[in-house]
Computed example of a mutant assay.
Amino acid sequence: MKEQKRSRKIAMTPEEVDAFLAEQRTVRVATNGTNGPHATPLWYVWHGGAMWLTSLSRSQRWADLQSDPRIAAVVDAGEEYLKLRGVEIRGRVEVVGEVPRTGEPVPELEGPEQAFADRYSGGTMHHDGRHAWLKLVPEKITSWDFRKIGG
């Protein structure tokens, strides 16, 4: 993975990145489409060093990623300047499991699906036959925590 070169003084440690991604609930993802960039919010889980995204399999985002799996994902928080913090993850997604997801046993999805269910649906994973899983393994992580500026 590429090392963060800029703003290292306000960068989060790997432990801080893990904690931040575990507490936030929404990610904004940007894909490359034939008509230009496409940005959308999604729910996610950070599990095993990867960002797991559930996406409608009949969507512009899905179509974009089938032709170009590169993606940028941003999770951010804070209202005031000295409280802004966030993480940008860049990489390529891979599809895991059946498309759309109906619940067939997929060992690689056991952990992410349980984490997703615990976070968003009271511990039970619901497969609606419309969504599928995308796994984003970071090629580069950039983070910032303006609380480290002080003042």
Score class of each variant (00 low, 15 high):
E139P: 07
D145F: 10
G151E: 15
E104Y: 00
Q114T: 00
W144A: 10
G97H: 09
W133K: 01
G49Y: 04
A73P: 13
M1L: 09
E104T: 05
K9G: 09
M1P: 11
L65Y: 10
D145I: 01
R85T: 04
V99M: 05
A11I: 05
R130S: 09
G36S: 02
Q60F: 09
F20W: 09
T34K: 15
F20A: 07
L134D: 10
L82R: 12
A50G: 07
Y120L: 01
V93R: 00
R25I: 02
L84I: 06
G97D: 09
S143E: 05
I10P: 05
M125L: 07
I89E: 06
V95G: 05
R58D: 15
A73S: 05
L82T: 13
H38T: 02
R28S: 12
T26V: 15
A72H: 06
K83C: 09
W62F: 11
G33S: 10
W43N: 13
V96F: 15
A132T: 12
L21G: 02
K2Y: 13
G151P: 12
H47M: 12
Q114M: 03
H131K: 05
G49H: 09
R147K: 08
L53V: 01
E15H: 13
W133E: 05
G103T: 00
S59M: 08
L65E: 12
L42V: 11
Y81N: 08
S67C: 11
